[in-house]
Nucleic acid binder design. Structure first.
Lengths: 346, 346
DNA sequence: TTGAAAGCGCTAACAC
DNA sequence: GTGTTAGCGCTTTCAA
């Protein structure tokens, strides 16, 4: 590890001068000749600042805390973390991720993170829902990811759920489907409500009437399969908008048993939460990919802009190599999903 | 943040004394009366050491680096990270996780981690394979997770792949299956080789002859489905050992199309890589759960024991709340998977 | 325009 | 046994 001291020696100046230059606070304070000399020596020696040492003085560590409940164990989370890491590393930050189970360990972990001098927090949920951030996070820079603050005070980055439902349904209508079903989620959350509302609106905009019998909201379990089976036999839908790919699988299972082929006899559009699933089903499935990477990326960028109190308008999303190698058969149809960035309302 | 200084003031002693006591280096150096006084004041004030400040002196930060390629984007990884975090936090460490794509960014990220003074590294792979750890990691404490060092020099924690294959096949034999197929992976790796060898050995131990025609090694893609379809029609197996749950899905798809029911007409045992899958298929699928959490846990514990140069024999795996809530229908049969801990051979 | 000096919170020699 | 002192790498007055 090369230090400022070494640079100072080599350049024949003091450490303070080096500090000024390397922090770009030399304008009008250090002779530009000396400044550039210091800079070249630094580059030459491969100097990299020791963020921990500076933190002692400045109180800022360039470390972000990423807190999630179960989320880090979901495939869903991988992309978010990856995106957040990407923005962080692009802006010279590091991410410490922490998973909690329950409020008790949550506060423990937050305290631990704070001891490490975390500059701010990302608080992520598994699926967009109304959320109350722990009080121990009040007062620190904080951004919610895939979640909505109860009081609208905390900024967040989340998918446009209504539009997901609208676009998916629109797609099925355009594909010529006459009886479009919605296989949703029976838990109350923004993702569910928004998507179902979008489904309904798309139908109405197309001059169709919303029919409750075509909607089945289920959990991800055994009874779910039965519910979808009943929907199949009672209503004979020819199009399915599925809350996620796990639910799409029920449709596949039922179709296979009835000798129906997805993509020919029935059409299916599903939100692609788990990737593994959709990759296996994909030759026949139209997916809506939640932009997890982007969500994490913009959330981290927003957090950093909060911390540094400056806008990051010039930031650009990096080219990503796909996190999971693309399915090597037919590239499935994909519907783009847009993000919403909510500002604090106060 | 309460500092040692404050404690020292309140106790009427010097900071060094406080330091000695709070680091448990007071034995025979500080009067026990004073020591306990310092301790109570510390507890009272809720003192928590600032690991970053001490790192400046000691060179140790109590931060571990977790490096993975794609792994952090796989559901597979969630458990590992969770386990590693658990051991880390139990022993007073923090985990910084970093995902890389390709060697270039890998070295970048490693350098960044080193700047943060990481005490050691966990290097994780997506699936057990022979691995060459980056040279930039030489010289620092390092443990491989779900990977095997090329030269056997680096300690690792990995599943007992042979036994997975053996136990799975044994299970199918015990279930009365006559024609047991193996749906494996066509990539060369320890996981594949070990599991297929275990499959073969179990058959032979049961007095059966290994039949190549019952083995199909595929990727996770379109042609894979065809290969399984062919296997179905040519060999009519009544038992399937699947490399993972994604491959098990091909068997389900084929069975459904032929009117066969898993658990009645055919038996399937699969390694449960992706959880989402197996949870959906589970009422009928016997799964082998890779102990991801444990793998991460023991790997981190091993790393810390390397760093602190002490054995952690008294460490106990914590009770975990299941990372993903258990499937609420029939609890699927599960086969236990054991871990192997490899020491450095030199 | 530059450098000396102090100090962030903590540890570790070394005096006392 | 306990306090003094120096210093980890860096930032930040303040004096020159």
């Amino acid at each position: 590890m090369v230090t400022m001291k070494e640079i100072a020696n080599k350049a024949g100046v003091s450490v303070s001068t080096v500090s000024l230059v390397l922090n770009n606070r030399d304008e009008g304070r250090v002779k530009s000749e000396i400044a550039s000399n210091v800079r070249t020596i630094a580059k030459q020696l491969g100097y990299r600042a020791n963020p921990l040492a500076s933190s002692l003085r400045t109180g800022r560590t360039r470390i972000l805390g990423f807190i999630s409940e179960e989320v880090a164990t979901t495939l869903y989370a991988g992309g978010i973390i990856l995106g957040a890491q990407s923005a962080a590393s692009q802006l010279g930050y590091m991410l410490i991720t922490v998973s909690t189970d329950g409020k008790a360990s949550e506060n423990e972990e937050i305290a631990a993170l704070k001891r490490y001098g975390t500059d701010g927090f990302l608080y992520a949920k598994m699926s967009n829902r109304v959320t109350k951030a722990p009080k121990s996070l009040r007062g620190t820079p904080l951004v919610l990811v895939d979640a909505t603050d109860e009081e609208g005070l905390i900024p967040s980055v989340e998918p446009d759920e209504f539009r997901i439902g609208y676009d998916a349904t629109r797609r099925l209508i355009d594909a010529g489907c006459e009886r479009i079903a919605y296989v949703g989620c029976s838990e109350l959350m923004i993702a569910q409500e928004g998507r179902q509302a979008g489904y309904r609106k798309a139908l109405e905009d197309a001059g169709r009437t919303f029919d409750e019998r075509l909607v089945v909201n289920v959990l991800n379990n055994g009874p779910a399969l039965e519910a979808v089976r009943d929907l199949f036999d009672a209503e004979h839908p020819d199009g399915f908008f599925c809350f996620n790919d796990a639910r799409a699988w029920y449709v596949y299972e039922c179709a296979a048993r009835r000798g129906l082929t997805v993509g020919r006899d029935i059409s299916v559009v599903g939100v692609d939460n788990h990737r593994v699933f959709a990759e296996t089903l994909s030759p026949m499935l139209t997916t809506i990919e939640l932009p997890h990477f982007e969500m994490g990326y913009w959330a981290a960028a927003k957090l950093i802009s909060l911390i540094e109190d400056r806008s990051l308008h010039d930031l650009e999303l990096p080219e990503t190599t796909a996190a999971i190698p693309p399915f090597d058969a037919v590239e499935p149809a994909k519907i783009h999903c847009t993000l919403i960035e909510k500002e604090s309302v106060r």
